[in-house]
Computed example of a mutant assay.
Amino acid sequence: MRALLVVNPAATTTSARTRDVLIHALASEMKLEAVTTEYRGHARDLGRRAADSEDIDLIVALGGDGTVNEVVNGLLHNGPAPDRLPRLAVVPGGSTNVFARALGLPNDPVEATSVILDALSERRERTVGLGLAAGAPGTEDEGVPARWFTFCAGLGFDAGVVGRVEQQRERGKTSTHALYVRQALRQFLEEPNRRHGTITLERPGREPIHELAFSIICNTAPWTYLGNRPVYASPSASFDTALDVLGLRKLSAAAVARYATQLLMSTPERGPHGRHAVSFHDLTDFTLHSKVPLPFQMDGDHLGVRTSVRFTGVRRALRVIV
């Protein structure tokens, strides 16, 4: 087997020595080419190269969710071919690693590598669904290219938090859960649309849902992690179905306190609920429109602002080694 290993040297939880150990372990079981990413988007370019190659059987991503997202977008630059779905293995190296952990992989990169090698030996893999987001037709965002996401996307509040965290990291701050909490508080205090939602959810053949203050789109559960604690925004979301949506109509102090508590106490059986919360399961096609530009994120990567985004849930898009 020939494999391409994409290594993010800035991965927050792996040292250079650990990465060398992992590379040697993988190379002992396959013909491995390791490439270290050098710029934003490099992992996507490498994924595209792997997808277009007849010689590469597997691509391995060593990094966080951002690295995985780039690799997946490269692998699927021409869309999923039903007769030849690309194969991916993920070695977690980021601060959260939601995608890898949702697949059941250990959060420790050495342990995860061991699981991957065992899975390759035993030919264990699964097919997962993914989400696809693009500018909605007939809107000012129509020309925005389509992009895949592996576990979540968000329009509004949570994307604003992600953007603030990225700004802090660019200033040298370390990505920690405390940093996210601080930036979430600042985003809430400065949120101009928290009392009157600007988002409309449209589904084919259904009445639109108006005045959502923010929305979270999930491709799996949990939505994220706080340390080792899983957080479920849409407990029914799954890699085997299409997309789930959680929306909130109000972001008053009382509502935020209530739903934040529900998120912290969420379980695989129960997520946020109440008269200001709306949730939908297994949607294959829907669009979010906002009256004003709102921050947008996918897989924890801030992508600027959007006014309209069309989402598609693709049930069989990728094969992963687990």
Rank of each mutant, 00 (worst) to 15 (best):
A34Q: 06
T37D: 13
G63T: 04
E33A: 06
H77L: 03
I56E: 04
R44P: 05
D52I: 00
A43R: 01
R49I: 02
G66V: 08
N69Q: 15
G41Q: 06
L46N: 12
N73H: 11
D57R: 03
S53V: 01
E70V: 05
E54H: 05
T37E: 11
R49Y: 14
G64E: 09
L62V: 11
I56M: 02
T37N: 12
G66I: 10
T37A: 09
A51T: 00
R49S: 13
N69C: 14
G63W: 08
G66Y: 10
V35F: 08
V35G: 08
E70W: 10
D65N: 09
T36Q: 14
E54S: 12
G66S: 09
G47R: 02
D55A: 10
G64N: 06
E54C: 00
A61D: 11
R49E: 15
R48Q: 15
H42Y: 11
S53F: 03
D57P: 00
I59W: 03
D55R: 03
T67H: 09
R48V: 00
V68L: 11
N73V: 12
L62T: 06
L46Y: 13
T36I: 02
L75S: 10
E54A: 13
I56H: 02
V72W: 11
E70G: 05
G64V: 04
L76M: 07
E38Q: 15
V68N: 07
G64R: 04
G41P: 03
L76F: 10
N78E: 13
G66T: 06
G66F: 11
D45C: 07
A50R: 01
D45L: 09
S53R: 01
A61M: 07
L62N: 04
N73K: 09
G47S: 09
L76H: 10
G63R: 03
V60L: 14
E38W: 00
S53N: 01
T36R: 13
L76W: 09
A34K: 03
H77Y: 13
D57S: 14
R40H: 13
D57T: 01
S53P: 02
T36G: 07
L62R: 02
D65P: 04
S53K: 01
N69T: 14
V60H: 06
R48D: 04
E70T: 06
G66K: 06
D55Y: 00
G41C: 06
T36E: 15
A61I: 07
H42Q: 09
D52V: 00
D57F: 01
